[in-house]
Amino acid sequence: DHWHVHIDGERIRLDGASEEFIRTLEELIRRGTDARELKEIIKEYLR
């Protein structure tokens, strides 16, 4: 599956992301997590 998110107007691909990770991201977004912080979390995950 190819997922991607838009954060700060930037399109970030989440290739190979699990549904669990996507749900976690959605939860963080709902909580109002800062965009820079979200991008860091995604970069760490994709390593």
Rank of each mutant, 00 (worst) to 15 (best):
D1P: 15
H2K: 11
H2L: 04
H2A: 12
H2C: 04
W3N: 13
W3P: 15
H4Y: 07
H4P: 03
V5D: 03
H6G: 04
H6D: 14
H6Y: 04
H6T: 13
I7W: 01
I7P: 01
D8H: 04
D8K: 05
D8T: 04
G9L: 02
E10F: 04
E10I: 06
R11L: 15
R11Y: 15
R11S: 15
I12Q: 02
I12C: 01
R13C: 12
R13A: 15
R13E: 15
R13G: 15
L14S: 01
L14Q: 00
D15C: 01
D15E: 13
D15L: 06
D15P: 14
D15M: 08
A17V: 14
A17S: 06
A17L: 06
E19D: 10
E19T: 12
E20L: 07
E20T: 09
F21W: 06
F21V: 04
F21L: 07
I22M: 11
I22E: 02
I22G: 02
I22Q: 07
R23C: 05
T24M: 14
T24Y: 14
T24L: 12
L25C: 02
L25W: 03
L25G: 00
L25Y: 02
L25I: 13
E26S: 08
E27D: 13
E27V: 05
L28P: 00
L28A: 10
L28C: 05
L28I: 07
I29F: 05
R30A: 13
R31V: 10
R31E: 11
R31A: 12
R31W: 06
R31C: 08
G32V: 03
G32K: 08
G32H: 05
G32E: 04
T33V: 14
T33D: 03
T33G: 06
T33I: 14
D34A: 09
D34I: 07
A35V: 13
A35H: 09
A35C: 06
R36C: 08
R36F: 11
R36G: 13
E37P: 02
E37A: 13
L38E: 00
K39R: 13
K39L: 15
K39G: 06
E40L: 11
I41M: 12
I42N: 00
I42A: 01
I42Q: 00
K43V: 10
E44K: 07
Y45M: 11
L46H: 08
L46S: 03
L46N: 07
R47L: 09
R47V: 13
R47D: 06
